[in-house]
Design a protein around this nucleic acid. Sequence first.
DNA 1: CTGTTAGCGCATTCAG
DNA 2: CTGAATGCGCTAACAG
Lengths: 354, 354
Amino acid sequence: MTVTLADVAARARVSAATVSRVLSGNYPVAERTRSRVLRAVEELEYVVNGPASALAAARSDLVGILVNDLADPFFGIIAGAVQEELSGAAGPGGEQLAVVCSTGGSPERELRYLTLLQRQRAAAVVLTGSASEDPEHARALTAKLARLSGAGTRVVLCGRPAQPASPAAEPPATLTTLAFDNRGGAQRLTAHLVALGHRRIGCAAGPAGRTTTGERLAGHRAALAAGGIADAPHRTVHGAYDRASGYDAAVELLRRDAGLTAIVAANDAVALGACAALRDRGLRVPEDLSVAGFDDLPFSADATPALTTVRLPLREAGARAGRLVTGREEPPPGGLATLRAELLVRGSTSVAYP
Amino acid sequence: MTVTLADVAARARVSAATVSRVLSGNYPVAERTRSRVLRAVEELEYVVNGPASALAAARSDLVGILVNDLADPFFGIIAGAVQEELSGAAGPGGEQLAVVCSTGGSPERELRYLTLLQRQRAAAVVLTGSASEDPEHARALTAKLARLSGAGTRVVLCGRPAQPASPAAEPPATLTTLAFDNRGGAQRLTAHLVALGHRRIGCAAGPAGRTTTGERLAGHRAALAAGGIADAPHRTVHGAYDRASGYDAAVELLRRDAGLTAIVAANDAVALGACAALRDRGLRVPEDLSVAGFDDLPFSADATPALTTVRLPLREAGARAGRLVTGREEPPPGGLATLRAELLVRGSTSVAYP
DNA sequence: CTGTTAGCGCATTCAG
DNA sequence: CTGAATGCGCTAACAG
């Protein structure tokens, strides 16, 4: 019923092996037979059976991309860039396909998807976004990545810190990390506020127990310390990376300290949520409170006032991950590259009016 | 080297068939042997070989999702919802994986990805967003979808109109369409402006030759006609679905007619670009010009002024597509459902001040 | 309920 | 440069 290699071979009056060679293009074939085969393929509308060839060749052309939430532009931009890069690297037989998996930030789902991708014998796996800080999960993840890597799957961590090496073995050579300088970016952001005279700065941080949250908080605290501002735990609240959390966080932060003059948010969506909360309470940004975001997603420039934020090279990171995965780019020395995080000062922050 | 079914079978002292049955869970197996097998799987850390089982079973657990641009939240939201729904339908052996493909709106790439998915023997394919209106491509697409469908791949069109039936055959029964009421939404939107007294309304439309663009323009024109406003071709410009196009479109529209009192945009991003252009020229929204978007992406509520727009049930559409694909939802009667498009009046539109 | 027997469709040896 | 033979790892009848 469905046409196979053998059918094509018969029609082109060659052996199946020859057809296979023509299609893979990785072996010399006489020009005449070659075109004869190609014509037969056309006429029969033959389409290779992917699973069969993956089985025989012991490798597939699937690349896994793990994200927290596809609907979040942060991940959409990264995943889109990775995928774009895959299609740019049209290999011999065809090109690689991106399998996108949303983990929702759950370490269990992360592991489960990795198993699913392992089952598919994925050519590569790209893990994006923050990782769980739970030591047990970190261990399980390291083990799983080592296994994947051992099976020939390339692994790229994109926008997350290097995976802690397992006690026993060295991290596999096929493991590359593209980290964001979250700490540095956060530090520069808070330093900017401190320089503007802010001393009571609320922090609407991301979910607890995630590397990105930890890094950004560390940068924030370092800047506070550098500015001689005492650590005030009650000025930090944790929440999800979304608008609603930002709204709630702002309300809660003001409840705890009505004298706040600024709020740094976990990301742009959270910042906009915070702005909305302030607006609803009759507070103006930045006259009454400064608000800052993180990531510089496209919409943050269109908010009013435009959001001061930290720009992360999302697209570049994804594209690089894609090139790493397709072998078109050499891994950075040591397998680790840290990507710049650039402070973008816009309208939502200004000097503190006490 | 890599552990196979046979290894597990040997360790559990059963036949390979039994192991297979335990793992697929679609056949009765004694509880004792079952747990014995499961233990062996654990101990050996066995992971099924996907390609092998796909080959033998003649079906894979991959679901293709075609989008224009993953970085655009419009598609991120839909794709995310589809994928989420796939993971919710944990089948016996595991769950389905989403293969996301960005076509960039190119009909050629669309066709090429469909072939790639056909090669993977995908269980289903979801095509999202607008389609090309080119008759030749429409024909090619219809043929390709028929072939996929004939091979047992379910096909869902999500957010695009029904594919024109091929002259010869009826559309396959496994083809379901979830269309957005773009025309109705656009009509209500423009009618809203007309009701506010606007008569010189510019239109920053989407790319020419795409179904979504055509539908929204048709709605727009219908509302104009209903309001007794003459068709003015120079008041419509075409561009991409992004912010930059919106900026350019606004500039061009004002150049052609400086007396415009409103602009309806192809989508929210275009609308925000238009707003930025107006702002740069010292025009206020909505006092000097009203501006309206389309889609109601999350950020459009945070713009200032908040965007009047048409809400499309993106998440719902994606989720439904996902359920259709996993067979958890019955196709609508006739294989076609049209999803509501709801007018959302916010701050960016107001009465016309001539 | 379980084991045996055949392929699934293709990529690779190895000969020629 | 081409063909014949072998097996990738698993599922699906078919018996028992």
